[in-house]
Nucleic acid binder design. Structure first.
Lengths: 325, 325
DNA sequence: GTGAAAGCGCTAACAT
DNA sequence: ATGTTAGCGCTTTCAC
């Protein structure tokens, strides 16, 4: 294995000079630079990140905490994060967590001195350890109420969705929320709906806001079950808003299985705009999230120099109209 | 940050002794062990993997190379790999590659001294660098013709699929292969079909084996386009075998858009058994791969001690009958 | 059964 | 403009 030493020797300079040309900082004579570059090329030198990381007391690994990795939404995010991280010489590692083993995973992250943590899990972490992480210089995104975070602004898309429903003459929406914690004000989907439904001639009935056991149960199953119970309840509804496209997929199937026609009898709107929701039956009208922007924001919040403790990045949404309304 | 030194000092022993109790190797008196354990607990010591990795000249990172991360199949794999890796104190990092930037990614992997590489991309890597990796002690899985690999034995499932088609009275299958390289003998799907179709009363017509531009184009779009061109070609066919469930999703939609009924007019069989293929319209009959076994095999091939250069692990498949045949 | 000490390859502060 | 050097925290050999 070729070390910086080797390069220095071969170029007839010191390791410091090699370091300077490698990092691009500090003065290096054109002559020295040329010799060093030549040595690097012929020796095929490659920096050992293990050593660099130790020295810097921090790795180039961004940890992504996921609870439901199988939901394509998170893979969209993961993919874009991988790309962005690559541009910035970092790598992303996936960590599966659930509310029972967070502690152990956190231990692991500390041990591995990851450079930052993006929390894509839906439970609110017990980050009493928050300070431990900060002391180590590990940035935490979407982990605590106060820290840096990216907020998906579902409001825009939600308004369009409600307007769309109104145009279709719908008045009694049900809401498949899937998980209690998404009812919290931090998530704009339900709250925006609750506060503005009336304005669009839509009734707001708390009984029609349904929670299930996501993510213990897969999103599409949650959607299916919740939709079935909705049908069984015999409460009148003429459209369904779903927190995620996968839940909408489940709802669509439940509706189909019960002979309820979409969009003739009931309209369905999803959220996420996965790359294949246009292939659902019928093609799903959905609130699209700018997943790329979201993912890039995560990586940037971890890697950029000038990020404040209260940095908040907003990500836009918009309605994509297809055939389910 | 608490170091091994600190623990040693606190326990009144040397770092070597601390190392012994930590690793569980070597003799340590009960007395010393107790003191060390106490110190570890009260100091809240956590090993610094950065340092350990440097010393061992190898990290605990398993690199996974993916080309089409958005295909849920790879996510299933990734998820299971993350779990398995966690059991063995390793972490998995995702690397996006395509045949144009492999070289750079490989450079990156070398720089980061990952402990192993699992190639989930479909192109055959130019691993002329193979030796460079081996010298560094980096294991390569599914990278070269000769190295350790896991083979998905599609034959079992494929036989069941053909039998199923035969029972349904089908005789003229089309095959949506999606990508040229999957036609190679290394992949059992097409080859098993080609060699055995006749036995099940199925015709084998090379003109009905369709390739597209996967993974440059998303799997479901490839499935859609290929199926459309199939319909347009006016060659007779009464069933379609698809290389992946996502391609089947596309085919299903193309068929629907052209008013062709599944399974009445045409039967469709997919491959993978993604967790939501039962929610397709109609629910898809598919060849299920034991994804967990596949994923575990990858991790084990990287991490286990006793892996030979020609180790081959087989993963089973079986047909899941739903409603598309 | 235990301890001392030599690095792993790099970075950066300091000296020249 | 360039070189020297002191660690980063760990593992592991070797000596006691």
């Amino acid at each position: 294995m070729v070390t910086k030493q080797d390069v220095a020797k071969r170029a007839g300079v010191s390791t410091a000079t090699v370091g300077r040309v490698l990092s691009g900082k500090g003065y290096v004579s054109a002559e020295a630079r040329a010799k060093v570059e030549e040595a690097i090329r012929t020796l095929n030198y490659r920096r050992n990140n293990l050593a660099a990381n130790l020295r810097k007391r921090k790795s180039n690994v961004i940890a992504v905490l996921v609870e439901d990795l199988l939901n394509p939404y998170y893979m969209h995010l993961a993919e874009a994060m991988v790309c962005r991280a690559k541009e910035k010489n970092s790598i992303v590692s996936l960590f599966a967590v659930n509310d029972r083993d967070v502690r152990q995973v956190l231990d692991d992250l500390l041990s591995n001195r990851v450079c930052g943590i993006v929390n894509l899990a839906m439970f609110t972490c017990d980050f009493s350890w928050y300070d431990t992480f900060l002391e180590e210089g590990i940035r935490l995104i979407n982990c605590t109420a106060t820290g840096p975070k990216v907020i998906v602004d579902y409001a825009e898309g939600m308004h369009e969705a409600m307007a769309c429903l109104q145009r279709a003459g719908r008045t009694r929406p049900a809401f498949i929320a899937g998980i209690e914690s998404w009812l919290a004000p931090g998530d704009l989907r339900v709250s925006c709906f609750r506060e503005n439904a009336e304005r669009y001639g839509l009734s707001y009935d708390p009984d029609l806001v349904l929670c299930g056991n996501y993510p213990m149960v897969k999103a599409h199953h949650v959607g299916y079950e919740l939709c079935e119970s909705l049908i069984g309840s015999e409460k009148p509804f003429d459209c369904i808003l779903c927190m995620t496209d996968m839940m909408a997929l489940g709802a669509l199937k439940a509706l189909f299985d019960h002979g309820i026609k979409v969009p003739q009898d009931v309209s369905v709107i999803g959220c996420d705009d996965l790359d294949f929701t246009g292939f659902f039956q019928p093609a799903l009208t959905t609130i699209a999230v700018d997943k790329r922007a979201e993912a890039y924001a995560y990586v940037d919040l971890i890697l950029d120099e000038d990020v404040s403790e209260h940095d908040v990045r907003r990500v836009g949404t918009k309605l994509i109209e297809r055939c389910s309304v």
